[in-house]
Design a protein around this nucleic acid. Structure first.
Lengths: 296, 296
DNA sequence: ATGTGCTCATCGAAATTTGTCATGTGCGAT
DNA sequence: ATCGCACATGACAAATTTCGATGAGCACAT
């Protein structure tokens, strides 16, 4: 058995482990990290050999990680957090000023909150004011100069060159397995309220003769829409994160929904070094970990 | 400049940095870590290149570490602490019971306190009772079965095969530069009190005709003796850690003092798995970092 | 001014580690 | 039985790290 003294948890090995956790498998983790699938597999194997314990259960239907794997993941998160903060601390410049930042409800959660927390620790003289609104509202605020930057969800084809894409996702027409759609006539539609930027798209295509949608339910939150779908009340447009077991994806009778993107969009203003630094940190995080975790 | 994304602080590089800090230079850090001097030099250089900043000042008379180096050392300490705890957590077995542990005042400080704290976090069902006494007293308590183990200071030649040596140090006869010893006759001796195990040795050799010691000061603490030496009151036996600028080491007229060792000594008892584990952790720490830091 | 001893830096070679490519294995769906 | 997918494995190439030898710089003694 490997001497404990020679054991060490390489930072990259921990990052790989974390990526397997957040991407759900070796192949997708490899893609996110820009490595080959076998490189990730080898890396995890070497880690397991050096620790003399299994980290992945490798059993169909079982959780991906063993108890030891979960234990190590907790440490990995903390070690990687300190590691990344150390790197930032060494390259930081003294910053001061204020940032008005807009976020959607989705993004006021794990990864971005952590990045903001770290940014505040490293740059205590920068005041970050955060407003949480839906994407349409945030875009209007940006145009009106009320915000310095916002993280908004937009149609993928609306991405501007100056936008920084944090996350792409796909919308799906979904319904519950138990819901039988009428062979013809309007389809019952579960609609977000008028602050949801892609509801208008849905309503627009719903005016076509052969794909008539009839709004039977209206709600502002994704949780409400998910609940209505689960209750077989009708059809809804949902992104991948909100799909649940028992939901069918409809590919006939309705046009393919457009792709979405979460982007960091800046106001058209003079440069703000503090904002530059914050945006750079967000970009680096996405690049290093293959994405950000959003709420589901 | 290296992309920030490719930067990473290897655990071994951080350990090397920490070792340079605690051993005072690259050559001694290399010795403590079992690497060649050039390997350590290379490692630090590679770290500096990858971070694009100097960590060591490399100027005679200046502090060994730059401000960036100090910043990184702080993170290194925390990252290494988590790393080592993660390794222990993965190999831990469920332990319960109680340990009666004896420590000297010297050892109730940084490294050992940290090891004990980590042990308690990893094994909350083990009750560690710590008694702080001087070495002679602790040895007596061990013999009487009042302690399961103790960390004591003893003469190097008294180390038993079952002892675990944590630290060796040398004693020196010292006096202040301003103190002129009488050309003949008794030497004024600054003595620890009768709980100090090597005072008897000093008093014994003080009975020889040509190296008569005359006790002119008696104190229980090293701080008190250091103060008396600094006040040019007389000569004392001190270990390397207590040497201060302005102190002369006397090598003539007095016999060479014996070497000392700090050891973990266990009581002659049935095996206690919790104690086995704690002792193993202490041993591993010494091995990994090239020693423990004691109070000075 | 010169010589000595010590610490650290550098070069080239050797050793070790890591990643890629190709391929094999196992499982679930059809 | 066949197919598609995710993961494991072996062999090899590429990258990284360590070692040994040696040079540079500094403080100190003469």
């Amino acid at each position: 058995m490997t001497e404990v003294n020679s054991r060490r948890l390489e930072i990259d090995a921990l990052r790989v482990l974390w990526s397997v956790r957040r991407h759900g498998g070796i192949t997708r983790a490899a893609e996110a990290l820009g490595l080959s699938q076998s490189a990730v597999s080898h890396k995890i194997k070497r880690l397991e050999v050096s620790l003399d314990c299994d980290l992945l259960s490798r059993k169909p239907g079982a959780p991906v990680f063993t108890a030891a794997g979960e234990d190590l993941l907790d440490y990995a998160k903390r070690i990687l957090g300190l590691h990344d903060e150390a790197l930032l601390s060494l390259t930081k410049t003294p910053l001061a000023g204020r940032i008005a930042l807009g976020l959607t409800e989705d993004t006021t959660c794990t990864d971005l909150a952590r990045i903001l927390g770290r940014f505040r620790r490293l740059h205590p003289d920068v005041a970050v004011r955060t407003k949480v609104r839906m994407s349409l509202v945030l875009r209007a605020m940006l145009e009106q100069g009320e915000l310095d930057a916002a993280i908004v969800q937009i149609f993928a084809h609306e991405v501007r060159p100056t936008d920084i894409v944090l996350f792409r996702e796909q919308l799906y027409w979904v319904k519950h397995s138990d819901l039988a759609l009428p062979p013809s006539g309007p389809i019952p539609f579960l609609s977000f309220d008028d602050e949801c930027f892609y509801r208008q798209w849905a309503l627009d295509i719903g005016q076509d003769d052969d794909t008539l949608l009839e709004t039977v339910f209206e709600c502002a939150s994704a949780a409400g829409i998910v609940s209505a779908v689960t209750s077989a009340l009708g059809v809804a447009l949902l992104n991948g994160r909100h799909l649940r077991p028992g939901m069918d994806i409809i590919t006939n009778r309705l046009p393919t929904p457009p792709a979405l993107a979460y982007v960091v969009r800046r106001a058209r203003k003079a440069r703000n070094p503090a904002l530059d630094t914050l945006v750079a940190e967000i970009e680096n995080e996405v690049s290093r970990y293959g994405g950000l975790t959003l709420a589901s």
